[in-house]
Design a protein around this nucleic acid. Structure first.
Length: 598
RNA sequence: GGGGUGGUAGCUCAAUUGGUUAGAGUUCCGGCUUGUCACGCCGGUGGUUGCGGGUUCGAGUCCCGUCCGCCUCGCCA
């Protein structure tokens, strides 16, 4: 085998005169005629031009070189030299070329369905790219992304090892749990009729590792949730998962903040500085979402108190609504300069936009020196002074208003705020805005189930000053949870956990788990908590989403080597697929598909 | 489960109101070409219009069903 002396991106002018050898793929070939043939050879770190001077070559070499085609895998040996023609400044190796004397064709390639070219890739159907992933991954962009991913995981292991963390693997075949996402399930051959579940996270195992005295644990692990994917969500995804003993909220946040600092510093050369903090309530009130994008300057203001006396039916009806113990509300966004920037077509579109979040629509008015104009101006005029003060209105602004249930108005406006910000170009796309969101409620009221559900997960502890509310006013009890948000995207989330059995039992009871259920599902946890559980807490970093930010993509499939489609398929291996009947029988089962409801 | 959108040559796209033999660029194949680098020039191959029905003298185009990709609501403790 003709083995390389350099990778394809390495040769430089300083190496000129040396005999070197390269291994790689034929990126392009440019046949100049009887005597001259250029081949760009590509490997993981770049391109190098190879030139064949065919007049002085053996007939075998001429024949082989002439037959080279894209994606053939070759080895070339020859003398590296300064290019005779103009240098190519687009290539790191652009000043030199390899004058080929020896060529070994390791493998001829069939005419490739797609070419691993970043220039083309943007246009190619992702479906084709996923089917031929082994070609798509040859692209410099994809190589860069997956190598960045590798750098991040190495950085995580180094950083946390230096801070006393031990990497421990937790099992993939575990038990289904009632709360949370749908589990992927696996039949248990040795216990016919029983099922394993694949983990949604190593949550309980890492807590038990704390009980087991490991003090500080980390794992870079796969988590699986059988829910529908999105552009930034896959059923199978990766976490940098950690847990610490003898800590309070701030200790975990400092540790994880330090890691975020190291990542942005080492990968992007960017100093993220001090990470700001905001309570969940403030985030919801000002931004309508628990992961505010602080690059967007628009803010939401509640004006329910101001317009409470309004005759306007829309306001009246909204305020009279109640749900989940919260009164309806009227909220407003001031859009600076909106009188000119927001067209009728845009604002009509906003009404359509918020309907997908169940809101009735968006009311609009312009504000000028003379007062409110257009839209619902006459319903706002009576409250002009108070509204100007609350919203800091200036002439030329527009006001967008949503009146509805609190949760509906909050959600709709939270999403609309992002859309308006994008539409008007108010978001500085190049900025990094980090934020810790803290003081989440412990529980959400579930109208359908008529019960409390854990907002984070049921092992989250109340904040130290909140324990007295746990039973008396669970809806007001705040948790010791924390989410790390960057540019409106949640990249990490965690909490201080409950380490006392009596507290854990109370929470289980509150979310409607009977003692029998709790024992059946989580008896091992309760037992562990009885046998010397230290105060502990942890956090998990979403590795895929982290990478999306670092490499600048809004498609999670770009940062996963072999991702799945929205229907959970792998287009390369054509999964999922059928299995042999014997495999099913081995599990003591037979399969009967139910009729699809029409 | 719902909403939206797309599927035509290996790839990226076009095809007027339902109307001739479904075109173009690129890849690929052949020829030419000694300094190209998205090489260039000439010629050629290449089609189950996702799949299955239907309407029609005639369907890429209209209708019904179905599969697949993407975006999204629900969902994602």
């Amino acid at each position: 085998m003709l083995k390389r002396t350099h990778t394809c991106g390495q040769p430089r002018l300083a190496d000129a005169g040396k005999t070197i050898a390269l291994n790689g793929w034929v990126n392009t070939y440019r046949d100049q005629g009887r005597g001259l043939l250029f081949v760009d050879i590509r490997d993981r770190d770049g391109l190098c031009q190879v030139v064949f001077n065919l007049e002085h070559a053996s007939p075998e070499l001429v024949q082989q070189a002439k037959a080279l085609r894209r994606e053939d895998v070759i080895g070339v040996r020859g003398i590296l030299r300064l290019r005779s023609g103009e240098p190519n400044h687009k290539l790191a190796t652009g000043e030199v070329e390899l004058a080929a004397e020896e060529l070994e064709i390791f493998n001829k390639a069939e005419n490739p369905p797609i070419l691993p070219d970043d220039h083309d890739a943007e246009k190619i159907n992702e479906e084709i790219r996923l089917k031929y992933r082994y070609i798509d991954l040859r692209r410099p962009r994809m190589q860069h992304i997956l190598r960045t991913r590798s750098k991040v995981t190495k950085l995580a292991r180094d950083y946390f090892a230096a801070n006393g963390f031990a990497e421990v693997e937790t099992p993939l075949l575990i038990k289904s749990t009632p709360e949370g996402a749908r589990d992927f399930i696996v039949p248990a051959r040795l216990h016919q009729g029983m099922w394993y579940a694949l983990p949604q996270s190593p949550q309980l195992f890492k807590q038990i590792l704390m009980v087991a005295g490991f003090d500080r644990y980390i794992q870079i692990c796969k988590c699986l949730r059988d829910e529908d994917p999105r552009a930034d969500r896959q059923a199978e995804f990766s976490q940098i998962d950690l847990e610490m003993s003898f800590v309070e909220r701030e200790d975990v946040m400092t540790m994880m903040g330090g890691f975020a600092h190291a990542v942005w510093h080492d990968i992007l050369g960017y100093d993220i500085g001090e990470i700001a903090q905001m309570t969940w309530q403030e985030a919801m009130d000002r931004f309508g979402i628990d992961r505010p994008d602080l690059r967007n300057p628009l803010e939401i203001r509640e004006i329910t108190d101001i317009v409470a006396g309004s005759e306007f039916q829309v306001f009246q009806q909204a305020i009279e609504k109640t749900r989940a113990g919260r009164a309806g509300c009227v909220k407003a966004i001031r859009v600076p300069g909106g009188a000119e920037k927001l067209t009728r077509k845009m604002t009509d579109g906003y009404t359509e936009f918020v309907k997908q979040f169940k809101a009735g629509g968006v009311a609009v008015a312009k504000f000028t020196a003379a007062g409110f104009e257009t839209g619902i101006a006459k319903h706002l005029d009576p409250f002009k002074d108070a509204l100007v003060a609350r919203l800091a209105l200036e002439a030329g602004d527009s006001v967008l208003i949503v009146a509805d249930h609190w949760d509906t108005a909050t959600k709709a406006f939270g999403e609309l705020r992002l859309k308006v910000g994008r539409d008007l170009g108010l978001v500085n796309e190049s900025a990094w805005r980090f934020l810790w969101v803290i003081d989440f409620p412990m529980f959400d009221w579930d109208e359908d189930g008529q019960r409390w559900v854990a907002m984070h997960h049921p092992f989250t502890s109340p904040n130290p000053d909140q324990f007295h509310l746990l039973e008396s006013e669970p809806g007001k009890c705040l948790s010791a949870g924390y989410d790390l948000v960057v540019n409106g995207s949640e990249i990490a989330g965690g909490s201080i956990r409950i380490h006392r059995m009596d507290v854990q039992e109370k929470v289980f009871k509150l979310i409607g788990l009977t003692k029998e259920d709790a024992d059946a599902k989580f008896g091992f946890l309760l037992s562990a908590l009885r046998h010397g559980a230290p105060p502990h807490g942890g956090i998990a970093f979403g590795l895929d989403r982290l990478l999306m930010h670092l490499v600048g993509t809004d498609n999670i499939r770009d940062v996963i080597a072999f991702p799945k489609t929205q229907s959970g398929g792998d287009l390369m291996i054509d999964a999922p697929g059928p299995i042999d009947e014997q495999q099913i029988l081995d599990c003591g089962m037979k399969v009967t598909l139910l009729e699809k409801k029409s």
